[in-house]
Nucleic acid binder design. Structure first.
Lengths: 342, 342
DNA sequence: CAACGTCATGGTAGCGCTACCATTTCTCTC
DNA sequence: GAGAGAAATGGTAGCGCTACCATGACGTTG
């Protein structure tokens, strides 16, 4: 007994429907869609017409199964609401919007365990490339990345030992530049205020230490940190703590701009003059830092560009010409503003 | 001639490897994984052991192909960097992190055409559910949603005619409440400042009009809008424009909190007293609004909760018990703060 | 002009999984 | 204790696509 065609599929046109309509073999349709130059122009036109008439859309699942390769970029970030990662992700989306690649986005919540779990899940899809935030993967995660069988790009920072490729900048140098700027501006009792304290924040702190040490200004009581998730309100609280601990504080380098904004608002509220009494430096240079009053000095980072570059490197690797330089350092820029203009 | 096993697959264990090792049929493994209660406890244990020993991970592509249904939620938002949508997306991710469902996230850039394109792409994957921001889909998009063959949840606002389900609140009522609050607080020349002006902003503006009209205060010169993407710096500029156009302005209802913050900073810079000379109300109530100095009155919206509820409704529909109420109105809350405490 | 590449096209056999039906075994019921 | 039903398991046949190889129609070469 003959079964009706398409027992389960919702009756959508398949590649053989297109082939029948165009009077060619199914495989020729497949080729016309993926490698048009290998099909004669005449057939290509016929096939194109049949595709449009039927409204045929290839099934990515069947494609992935047959070719053992999904047209998917796996992207792993620690947070979706942190503007920094949102910008990177936006750069990735924008770069891939005209390509056949889809994006599988995972949120690790800053957890190494969660990262491993997601890499496991993503790996089972045989992605075309993986983009992961950070360079501090657990050994298990690192092994998963090495065995992924696809290009891997670590983003947000650079380091000595890439799994495959890297795009970012040196957070240590950034922290150091910020601190040195405060020192040059004449501040002396410069605090470090940091929330979340992920590995990148740790390295910014390390940069702060280097600069302070070199200037002979380092004092552990100047450092105020917490593992709690960063926010503007937390910035205010941490600044109050810092001030209570060290009333002679005359400057702060903040982990990020949210914290810096919290500090700024608290200064307003407590009528502390910025930049005269306290100098403030943030990190990332969100749009609002130059609008704030007083405008806030910050380290401008190229987040969107990191996303774009990561995709560009991955696409190059996929198409066989892996970039010469496996590590792209996009640097940063110190934006001097009113908050440190003593 | 016998072909070697696994011609293309990277040699990863398949379901039949597990079946062989556990001494059962492949289909029983499949069932043990998906509907454990239909397999005897003994076999379940054996299978579990085999899965772990081999490190078997099911291939989602093969699964999707065979079952004509992918374990994927398609999510469409107009922006990835706008905190509002980022929060919704975070709620969706958090709600699905323990489920077998993956998330396919699309960025429409506020474009109806792009939305159609993405719905086409997402549809080809036969998703388990679709979550889309907004209720103003183009006719073509609406048709795609209706024919998606899966639960559809429209999020961020409520309206009269859901494709399937809706979670959100009334932006018109929100805009109205914000404006009425300003009026009650004694402000009279109340401006509306809005950027981006997507359909939700339009409805907030409509709410503003209703309230102003009712109070006999409406004057078209009080309204300042632009289609440009919203930002804090844009808020400052628009406020300057508004003030130039209408120097007697004594209050502003802002489209969103970014704009409100820009207005606040400009007031600081121009030494305009808030709330005495100018009252400010924002929309969304970002964390920083209550930290700002002065703290800023805003309409608190439940963005994270919208994401969670959307997933809950979709999951219910998938498992067969579609919620009684197809429309969930999560409301909003007026947060009175210093910026309107005259 | 035979021998040999090259190009365009097609047929076949899966990719790894699950829907559908069949089979077996184990309860109940009257 | 025979018949009916339920519960547990398995076999078969695809899902829609592409890798691999085969085929035939052309040049091109010596």
């Amino acid at each position: 007994m003959i079964k009706p065609r398409s027992r389960r599929g919702g009756g959508r046109p398949t590649i053989s429907d297109v082939a029948r309509k165009a009077g060619v073999g199914a495989i020729t349709v497949s080729r016309a869609l993926r490698e048009p130059e290998r099909v004669s122009e005449e057939l290509r036109r016929q096939i194109q017409a049949a595709v449009e008439e039927l409204g045929y859309v290839p099934d990515p699942n069947a494609r992935a199964l047959a070719s053992a390769r999904a047209e998917v970029f796996g992207v792993l970030v620690p947070s979706l609401t942190n503007n920094v990662f949102a910008e990177v992700v936006r750069g990735i989306y924008d770069s891939l919007s005209d390509s056949p690649f889809r994006i599988q986005l995972g949120n690790t919540h800053y957890s190494g365990l969660e990262e491993e779990r997601l890499l496991q899940v993503f790996g089972s899809q045989r992605p075309a490339a993986l983009i992961v935030a950070g360079i501090d993967q657990t050994p298990a995660s690192r092994k998963l990345l090495e065995n992924a069988g696809c290009p891997v790009v670590q983003v947000m920072e650079t380091g000595p030992d890439p799994v495959d490729m890297m795009v970012g900048f040196s957070h240590l140098d950034g922290g150091r530049a910020a601190t040195e700027h405060l020192i040059e501006a004449g501040y002396r009792r410069i605090g470090f205020i940091g929330a979340r304290m992920d590995p990148r924040s740790q390295r910014r702190l390390a940069g702060y230490r280097v600069a302070m040490e070199k200037a002979g200004l380092l004092d552990p009581r100047l450092i105020t940190t917490t593992p709690v998730l960063s926010s503007v309100s937390l910035g205010r609280e941490l600044f109050r703590d810092a001030l209570a601990k060290m009333p002679t504080l005359d400057g702060v380098f903040c982990n990020n701009d949210d914290i810096a904004l919290g500090v700024l608002f608290e200064c307003h509220r407590a009528s502390i003059d910025v930049p005269k009494t306290i100098g403030i430096v943030g990190f990332n240079d969100l749009d609002m830092m130059q609008v704030a009053f007083p405008s806030v000095t910050s380290i401008r980072t190229h987040r969107y560009e990191i996303g774009r570059r990561a995709v560009a490197m991955a696409l190059a690797a996929i198409s066989g010409n892996r970039p010469q330089e496996r590590i792209a350092d996009l640097g940063f820029e110190l934006k001097r503003r009113e908050s440190t203009a003593r």
